[in-house]
Every structure is written in C-alpha cells, then in structure tokens.
Design a protein around this nucleic acid. Structure first.
Lengths: 235, 235
DNA sequence: TCAAAAGTGTTGAAAATACACCCATGG
DNA sequence: CCATGGGTGTATTTTCAACACTTTTGA
C-alpha cells in the first residue's frame, strides 16, 4: 500500500499570533498579505506547511522569516478546519501564538511584508477567520498568564517590577495594588534582584530583576497565583 | 484562481480519546483497528476528515459511530503533524478528547470495532503517535478538572458525593479528606441535593445530587478550586 | 448488634486583601 | 526644594487544612 485511497487531501497552513508589549499596550504583529486572495489586506503571519516539516517547524520557520528571531515562546493554540474558511480551496490552519520581546524585533528584517504592531484594542479587519484566531489567542494568554509565568517572555532579560506590573495591568485591563503585586511576584521566587537600576522611568530609578531560570523551569507548570482574585475572572 | 499552486496537500484525520469512569478507574475506549496499516492493533477511534465537514463535525461523527452518543463533552486537544507519524502517507491528525457517562455507552452499537475500555494504568501499545496523544489528554483532563467542573460529564445525571469524590481521587491518583471535599464542592453552588438516596453503595445510602445548570454555565469558565493544594500540583 | 459507609463542625495556620507613608533624585 | 515615581509594612479578613465522632441500616 502506498497511499490511502479515496481520502480527501487539504492544504495545511499555520498562522501565528505574535504578541509584543511596548510598555503601555499589548500588541500583535500583522502584515499586509502578499498574494491572492485578499492581497494587501491585513493578516496574521502565516504560510503553508511543506511536505517535509512538522507544524512546529513550519511555525518557527515563518516566525523567523518575519521577525528574524529564533527560539521564542511558541505554543500551539488551536486548529481551524471549517471547510469554507479559505475561499480558494479547503485549507486547514493551525494557529500558534508567540511571545516576543518587542525590542528584539527588527522591522527592517522583513520590509517586504510591511509589518506593523497593532494594539489589541484596535485590530483592523483581518482575512478569513483570523479575527477568531486573535480573540482565542487573547483569551488563552489571559488564561495562561494567570497561572504560569509566561509574560516574562514579553520583556527584556532585565526588567523592573513597575514594568512587569504595567504588563500585567495591560493584559488584564485592570489596576493592581503595587504593594501586593510586588509581594506576590517576589513570593514566587522567580526573580533575582540586580544591583543596577533602570533610571529611564523615574528620577529615583527602579531596580532591575532577572529571571531565576532554575526556579522558572521548576515552577513553570505549577499553578502560581500571579494575579489577584483569579477566581473572579471569567476567561 | 482555483487552487493554490505548488502546495503540498495532506490527508487530515481526527483521533478521539474517549474517557469514562466505571466507579473505580478512569478509563479510555480503544478499538481494534479495522484496516491497514496496523490492522488488528489497538488504536484510538479515529478517521479521516471528509471534504465537506469541519474537524468538529468529523470528531462528532466518529464518536457517534463508535458510541452511539451525541452531544457529549468534546474538546480539541492538539494537532499532531510530524511528517512521519503515519507511515502510509503524510497525515495530519487533530486529537480530541471526549468525556462520556460510561453507563450510557452501549457496547453493542459497534461490535464490528471490538471496542474495549482500558484503565489508564494499563494502556496497551498503540499505533503511530497515539500514546503521546493519550498522555497529553490525561495531562489536559487533570489540568482542566482542577479549575473547571468537567468531571461531572463522566457521571450520570444523578450522582452522590462519595461517587464524585472517588472520581476526583481516581483522576488525581490521590486521597482527599471527605469533610473538606464535601465543603469545597458544595461551596461552588453547582450541586442541588435531591430527596432520594442511592442505596447501592452502602446500607445507609448517599443522597443524590444534580447539577445546577444555571450556576454550571455561569461558573464554568471561572477558576474554581476543585482539588486541594492545586499550587503544589505539577501538570 | 455490628459492620460499613455517610455525614457533619471546629480550630489553627496560611494566604490574600486593603491600605499610607517615606525615599531617592534630577531638574 | 519639590515633583515624580519607587519602595516597603501591618492589620484584618478570608481561605485552607487538619482532624474524629455520630448516624443509618441491612444483614
């Protein structure tokens, strides 16, 4: 036997929702689609899965193409298989979401795609079912970040607690008491205080912290209560 | 434009991990595969996605075929796309997990597949990458059930608190103090006490409960602490 | 009458929340 | 010297965990 007989075959795509944080807003990176259909419209970064690569490999390849970056946080989100989702021909698409340090991203890597960062509050109309993908990704990041320390992936190696708090407040569109936030985050044992301060945000300066990678890996899968009142949150 | 040119096309499958609870053990339903390759080997219930159906529709169709049941809890788990996972030809498979009331399942519906329930402690060798699918499904059910009331899907409409506790103990392979368990579960407001008792398990009998469907839908997505010490669990 | 499972309450510890003042510094 | 953001402590409330005895009833 060489192939399954009489089975339908579909093109297989991956689409990536790339998150970044600019200090004020959680954003995603969109491109202007370079081929028909819907050429010129805003779109997620995506592409077809090739014959010899896995879905994870395909999404990494596509992310490298757009951002020039390797090894970022990347997680499979969901597979979208509505028969009519792509008007050209039936295509199953597996959505991934990625978290990157927005400062590492170099726009010039991929000027041909005309990529732009969009705040999640103002996402333009997207092609196909990509709006649903973005909404699901946003729900997932909020869900996961309440329990696991994934948001550090959006910050540089060294960051300050006020920066981190601003990120959490942005993701959950809320405000958090800074005394309690600081206690909660430090209680995880994930942070190592540095000697230096970031003097950019204030005259006094805020101490830099770095991740304690050992604790990070050890505790990543456990439930950490990283935001206040998680039981009241509806995801 | 009619089709994308030069893109590879793959067969698309779905595989279902069907969970049931027999009062003592969490089990999954396996079949003896009816076609080559690996004919006669134990396998998940799966099949190819047809040209005009979505992935969700395909998994529902396949579950109906095997169990005779409709409308059970069904959730997309993960999509497996290693190029070599199926030796016949490249096939992308989206795994789903389903939770059913094992008593509603009628074996005679599908004698042609020779289905059998296997305790998760003793899963036979499975074809392709299905062992990985089962392990991921088990992690997922443990993860999700710690926060959301999904395990009720494994019980009949009316159930007793000792039955429910036994289910949680089985899923987490642990023992729970019955006073604390009872308090915790009743505090969710999800249960309505019935007048009748189940006399099967003891002379005294245990009161039946039913789900309060309004609270169930309202609170399903919130974080409920359904098991003790969730912060210590590693998923 | 007794074995076997059901059912229930309290107490101490730990965690979470609410809340306000001092510090450091560049301009 | 003062405006701005950084940093910290305590009291209260709530939640969680540990723990043991009584009830029911069929055999």
């Amino acid at each position: 036997m060489i192939r399954y007989s009489k089975q339908s075959r579909f093109t297989q795509a991956v689409d990536c929702i790339i998150f970044g944080f600019d200090g004020d807003n959680l954003k995603i990176l969109l491109i202007q689609r370079g081929f028909e259909p819907e050429m010129g419209k805003w779109s997620l970064m995506g592409g077809f899965v090739e014959a010899d690569e896995s879905l994870d490999q395909a999404s990494n390849r596509i992310l490298k193409q757009l951002t020039g970056l390797d090894g970022m946080y990347l997680e499979q989100l969901h597979t979208f298989g509505n028969p009519l989702r792509d008007p050209v021909e039936r295509t199953v698409s597996t959505a991934y979401f990625a978290l990157i340090d927005i400062n590492k991203y170099q726009k010039q890597i991929s000027t041909d795609y005309h990529p732009e960062w969009f705040s999640l509050k103002r996402i333009p109309k997207l092609i196909f079912d990509q709006q649903e993908m973005v909404e699901m990704a946003q729900r997932r990041i909020r869900y996961k970040a309440a329990l696991h320390p994934i948001l550090f992936e959006l910050l540089p190696n060294r960051f300050t607690i006020p920066q981190l708090q601003s990120l959490y407040e942005s993701v959950y569109n809320t405000t958090i008491d800074k005394r309690n936030f600081s206690k909660r985050i430090l209680a995880t044992g994930l942070l190592i205080k540095q000697a230096e301060k970031d003097k950019a945000g204030s005259r006094r300066g805020a101490f830099y912290y770095q991740l304690n990678m050992q604790n990070y890996y050890a505790k990543f899968q456990a439930f950490l209560n990283l935001i206040p009142n998680p039981t009241n949150l509806i995801f």
